[in-house]
Design a protein around this nucleic acid. Structure first.
Lengths: 141, 141
DNA sequence: TATTGTTATACTCTATAACTATA
DNA sequence: TATAGTTATAGAGTATAACAATA
């Protein structure tokens, strides 16, 4: 099925771009999501569709690299907010820029009209499936 | 980027279908590949683009479930061939059938012409990228 | 009681290096 | 020497249950 091959192509692209900054795809996606706004652990667990227990290690690893910080939430002493550091924001923007660029490159063999039609079809499919992959909102995408 | 959301949608579909048979996506893909023909460990490592050391555990796990067998190769006492059992073939065919069906369902919101154009675009993109995800050949795909 | 986040445990996938048996 | 496959080890992601602190 051609769709699976396309998906593999996309995942490889994301993995390759992330790898350049020694990030895993999940870590790249995490930084990407956090460019929009800081998020709590339970919130991130919901976005990534994993158990919240998994967020502890995931955040630990990128925190140790200085890309994010756990910050206290005024008014709720249970909660933390995960926020990008300056380094983390730089990494997130570079990741976002390169992924966007390389994925756009995949469409180059199509004619401009075919590219437009393709993007429209992808949008239709995604919306119809009620999908919220939460790679973060992106005006340019 | 819409492409990433589409990719996430596809991966989720594959994972969901695989999960119904208590398979991981990688295990589903392994069975899928083996429907074409038996393969050696090094060969599978190349197809999956991982180190051959990883194949040992991967095959162990599906072998313990009775889905594949290691069979001797006449003429080379170093080699083994991984071959589907009857159960494995049944699982592979069900996996293939359901994945194909559900992915085709994703395209339903498109008009028939848009579906044709979309499939054509996906094929163009995949070929242009020189991709060989090796989900196995499939006449119907 | 419900929610937030953590700890502990286990499994799968992947990467790497070292090793064996055979070619 | 080269190849086929394994063992050993490590790290990352994920699933689950139990737990502490706070709301």
């Amino acid at each position: 099925m051609a769709l699976i091959q396309l998906s593999g192509l996309i995942q490889e692209t994301v993995a390759r771009v992330a790898g350049r900054q020694r990030l895993t795809p999940v870590q790249g996606r995490l930084l990407w999501v956090l460019t929009e706004q800081p998020r709590g652990m339970a919130e991130l667990a919901r976005i990534f569709a994993v158990g919240k227990a998994n967020l502890t290690g995931l955040i630990d690893r990128v925190e140790h690299r200085g890309l994010v910080e756990r910050s206290l939430v005024p008014g709720d002493r249970r909660a933390v907010q995960v926020v990008l550091t300056d380094d983390g924001r730089r990494a997130a923007l570079a990741f976002h820029r390169d992924v966007t660029s390389e994925l756009a490159g995949l469409l180059e063999p199509l004619t401009p009209k075919a590219q437009d039609d393709f993007r429209q079809a992808v949008t239709t499919i995604s919306h119809s499936a009620g999908h919220s992959t939460a790679w973060g909102p992106c005006q340019a995408c």
